[in-house]
Design a binder for these strands. Structure first.
Lengths: 123, 123
DNA sequence: CCATGTGTACTAGTGTAGATAGTACACTCG
DNA sequence: CGAGTGTACTATCTACACTAGTACACATGG
């Protein structure tokens, strides 16, 4: 079976976070539509070569964020998700932005480039 | 002694990264000027309540990034730093931007808000 | 000279989080 | 009934951050 999304390995982040990001990206960009079947915990672990427990935690995180729905005995499907105005995560986002700005300044990247990169990534 | 920069504790990141960020921010924003004395490793560890080794690693990281200069036997001073076009770190920045965009979309935050937040943080 | 404070370099131990390994149970569907 | 599903445990391993302690070469001021 081929996974309906791709995982790009990046150093510095946990396996869990990387897969959660990849799946989130697929859902948010519409690559995965509401109602689509999400790979089972066991399929996920086999295809990615990770432990079933790790796969389970990934699915649990995605469910908690409202991106997936669980049908016990049946499987997991992509939820008809709503943008969740989670205050805690929003605060984290603001902190991430500040870190991004400081890093960009230190690297000599102008604001315009950063904004352009964001607009490009948004499409 | 009072440190010439403030450290905001944030969960999910290592002590090392937090202090490096705080110091980088101080230098990049001009709060610390080239030639200014940077707290010694021992002062840093005392004021922050961290181990001298951790403080040493922090200083080493800042030196490696060209933000500080070492004067053995004398101390460490803020370097007349140049924006470093480090390709590896620039690639990380691009990856961070993509993650930021996906998170913002999932949280229902419009592009305009993100860009505004960046412009605001840039000042 | 020398005492003090500095950067630097080790070795070692500790605690925590991520990931793995294995097992188990209730559920749904053909 | 049987296969595949989600879910829930406990245990173990490993990597990393952090701590602890010691040591040495250097520069400066008294």
């Amino acid at each position: 079976m081929v996974l309906p999304f791709t995982v790009v390995v990046r150093t510095g982040r946990s396996l869990h976070d990387q897969v959660v990001f990849a799946a989130t990206k697929a859902v948010v960009t519409g690559q995965l539509s509401p109602g689509d079947a999400f790979p089972s915990v066991r399929t996920l672990s086999q295809e990615l070569g990770i432990n079933p427990n790790t796969a389970q935690k990934i699915v649990a995180t995605l469910i908690e964020r409202g991106l997936l729905e669980s049908r016990p005995g049946v499987g997991t499907v992509v939820s008809s998700w709503q943008p969740s105005a989670n205050p805690a995560r929003r605060a984290l986002l603001v902190a991430d932005i500040e870190r991004l700005v400081v890093d960009a300044k230190q690297l000599g990247i102008p604001v315009s480039d950063v904004i352009e990169a964001i607009r490009k990534a948004w499409k």
